[in-house]
Amino acid sequence: MAAGEIAARQEAMKGVGGAMKAIKAAVEGNTAADAVGPAGKIAATMKSVPDLFAKTSDTGETYAKPEIWTEWDKFKEAAANSGAAADKLAMVAKTGDAAATGEALKALGGTCGACHKPYRTPKT
């Protein structure tokens, strides 16, 4: 069971990474309208982040640190911060303002890092 949960979690996070790259490309190309779909995908995924970390998925081929489960409330707060930033990005992208979308993407990236640093083992 854990292997399937871990794979689903990793796939979701890869999807977020791909969507962030697509948004960056839209911002750099000054086509913020192209960021709307990927931003919505990120916002939807971020709402489910705590659900992706079931206690049964704490061992196996994972980069998730044990601190996720020992500091569950802090982890959920960090995930909620990312969720709020993702919602803002989705809202800003709809305005078509590439500069503002870029700033919202940067803010989201900061919240992702704030969660990854304490709760994810660096990939080597």
Rank of each mutant, 00 (worst) to 15 (best):
A3M: 07
G4Y: 00
E5G: 12
I6G: 04
I6C: 05
A7M: 10
A7L: 11
A8K: 12
R9E: 10
Q10G: 02
E11N: 08
K14C: 00
G17M: 04
G18E: 06
G18L: 01
G18D: 05
A19L: 07
A19W: 05
M20C: 00
M20N: 02
K21M: 07
A22C: 02
A26T: 03
V27Y: 04
V27S: 05
N30D: 14
A33I: 02
A35P: 03
G37N: 04
P38K: 04
P38W: 04
G40H: 08
I42T: 09
A43V: 08
A43D: 12
A44R: 12
K47P: 00
S48P: 00
P50L: 08
F53Q: 05
A54I: 01
K55Y: 03
K55Q: 10
S57A: 15
D58K: 15
T59S: 15
G60A: 04
Y63A: 11
K65P: 02
E67R: 11
I68W: 10
W69S: 09
T70S: 15
D73A: 15
K74E: 15
K74L: 11
A78D: 14
A79K: 12
A79N: 13
N81Q: 15
N81V: 02
G83C: 02
G83S: 07
G83T: 06
A84F: 01
A86W: 09
D87V: 10
L89K: 01
A90Q: 10
M91G: 08
M91C: 00
V92Y: 12
V92F: 11
K94P: 05
D97Q: 10
D97N: 15
A98D: 12
A98G: 06
A99P: 08
A99I: 12
T101F: 09
G102D: 12
G102H: 11
E103P: 01
K106S: 14
L108S: 09
G110P: 03
T111G: 13
G113F: 09
A114T: 03
C115W: 13
H116P: 12
K117C: 00
K117V: 13
P118M: 12
P118G: 12
R120T: 11
R120S: 12
T121A: 14
T121Y: 09
T124C: 06
